[in-house]
Simulated scan of single mutants.
Amino acid sequence: MPVNDPITPEPLLQLGLGFMASKTLLSAVELGIFTALAGGGRNRESLAAEVGLHPRSSADFLDALVSLDVLDRDEDGTYRNTAAADLFLDRNKPSYVGGILEMADARLFGFWNNLTDALKTGAPQNEVAHSGAPFFATLSQDPIAWRNFLNGMNGVSTPLAGALAADFDWTGRRHVVDLGGALGAVPAAVLRANPDITGAVFELPPVRPVFEEFVAAHGLADRLAFHGGDFFSDPLPEADVYVMGQILHDWNLEQRRFLLDKAYAALPEGGTLIVYDAMIDDERRRNTYGLMLSLNMLIDTEGGSEYTVTDVTRWLRGAGFRKAEARPLIGGYTAVYATK
């Protein structure tokens, strides 16, 4: 008989203490470690001096990043970015996705300390819990936090935008509007790949200044417009493709159905609504990332959560869409293409 592998506590301890590794990476992003190394390798002393590390912390901190596979260290002690860190965590590259990590460090890391309270009460633990004011209204009053939040959302959307632009057949489409699209990562990716298409973002008015900076930096000011408004109370701009990316998970079931009904009514016949989120697998076993994000929605919203493909397909058919096709994107995200 084969001998069973011994049961050890290491996996449980590693999981329970995972916040240590998480915070190590978040601090590295905050300090600009990867941006400092984007120009080439550096020794510990010069790198520590540039980013402000104390001599007591520098060796253990930088070597921890090596052990986490986000830095490499040569035999002579020179530190370098790994390929992934250099591509995605250098603030000066258009592929930078560290905005979401900056937002997680500034906001979510502290909120998750109150997960137990959220589990017991069902109440959010974010800025609303402290001020009682609506989340976006509160956040937009702090220019730094607001910019970090928008850049964070853009950081999440950037790799998804490229995947979506490549996956969907844009042939014959003329105008795409991203509903709640933050800085416009998705339409920007679509427009870059399809020079005959124009686009717009429908967002709350305080987003406009940061949006305009993003659009100008990407040379799309003549093709990518901004429409200020609230998708619950204002008419939706005309389009033959709407995108709702990481939107439905913010709201409760009644609000989700309202938004899907509204999009269906505004689309022309043959128009498409694209919904993407970190949808949970129907068996609720495999997409750990989606389940963690659903707990984050518990902490950070009043009624939001992630949902399954079966759930959203049922809602879309209830809104009137005659066809809904689900396709995996990247990183635990799924897109559903619904046709009117």
Rank of each mutant, 00 (worst) to 15 (best):
V3M: 13
N4K: 03
N4D: 07
P11T: 02
L15P: 04
F19T: 00
L26R: 15
E30L: 11
G32K: 06
I33M: 14
F34M: 12
F34D: 11
T35L: 14
A36H: 13
R42F: 09
S46G: 05
S46R: 14
L62M: 14
D63P: 00
V70F: 10
L71F: 09
R73W: 10
D76R: 11
Y79L: 07
T82Q: 02
A84P: 05
R91D: 03
P94C: 09
I100F: 08
M103G: 10
F109D: 01
W112E: 15
W112G: 12
D117M: 13
D117G: 14
A123K: 15
Q125G: 07
E127V: 13
A133I: 09
P134W: 03
F135K: 06
T138R: 05
T138G: 06
L139S: 00
L139M: 09
S140W: 02
I144T: 08
R147P: 03
N151D: 06
G152Q: 02
S157L: 04
S157F: 01
D167W: 02
G172T: 09
R173F: 03
H175M: 03
D178I: 01
L183I: 05
L183K: 04
L183N: 04
G184W: 06
L191E: 00
L191N: 03
R192V: 04
A193I: 05
N194E: 08
N194S: 03
I197N: 13
F202Q: 06
L204C: 03
P205D: 08
R208I: 04
L224I: 06
A225T: 13
F226E: 03
D230L: 09
P237W: 07
V241A: 13
M244R: 05
L248H: 06
H249G: 12
N252T: 07
N252S: 08
L253Y: 06
Q255S: 13
F258D: 06
L259E: 04
L259V: 15
D261Y: 02
E269W: 01
E269Y: 01
D281I: 00
R284V: 01
G290M: 12
D300F: 03
D300N: 14
T301W: 07
T308W: 07
D311I: 05
G318I: 10
A319C: 06
G320E: 10
A324M: 08
A326M: 14
I330S: 11
G332V: 04
Y333W: 01
Y333E: 04
T334E: 03
A338I: 00
T339A: 11
